[in-house]
Amino acid sequence: MYKLENLSKEFHEKENSIAAVKNVNLHIEKGEIFGIIGFSGAGKSTLVRCLNLLEVPTSGKVIFNGKNLMEISQTELRKYRQKIGMIFQSFNLLAQRNIVDNVCYPLEIAGVKKKEARKKALALLKLVGIEEKAKNYPSQLSGGQKQRVAIARALATDPDVLLCDEATSALDPITTTAILELLKEINQKLGVTIIIITHEMKVVQQICDSVAVMSEGTIVEQGAVKEIFATPESEITKRLVWDWNFDSRSMYYEEGDT
């Protein structure tokens, strides 16, 4: 599905350059839910933006379905992007379009006929459980509902993969769980590969099959979620696991108190 080879991204600011992603090698299998976890500033958002070339990597290869996206033309890249859905922390819905028209947007771009696009958009809104809001505008929706619309929109062009950039970070814990369940359902029902960027161990623990731990632009550890949890090797991973254990333990005590 996705293969990253020696991927690096540097940002140049006047005199100094900052290496946000350094020599990353990753292999993401078709159909899995892959988590990329790390603390703020680890370079994970830059990495996920390199996957659809929103950020153009400084060097390396981004191989998607056997094609190196770095070598193709802009026109071809736009076609490929229709096969790579993406959702964001801040939802990024079009504020002046109603919900169903938001979901229609990628279909318009793909040249689908209006009537067909509408039909598909409504079906997708049903899938994400928000069809009754079709005529509303984004400002009338809660965060969780907005993210559901964003998911429907990202799925409109039948993508092979869904990139989630801190998709649950702006949501409360209960809504987070619901959105993650929805992503899992989509992964199972539609077979869409899902790549999740997060700083929350809970997200990885709840739905990911594999995980890569990122720190200072590099992948420090990767593998099946269970193994990483059972035998964390790097300091960062240990800290993430420890924090998470601490959180879940304190949650347990809170429940015990009541």
Binding site: R81, Q82, I84, F88, N92, L93, A95, A154, T157
Partner: peptide, 24 residues
């Protein structure tokens, strides 16, 4: 962010101007 999302969905620059920038 909205412009970035439009880009990620495969919009051309012209489509971003016409369907995102001006209407928004």
């Amino acid at each position: 962010g909205v412009i970035e999302a439009a880009k990620a969905m495969g919009s051309s620059s012209f489509q971003i101007i016409w369907k995102v920038l001006l209407p928004e």
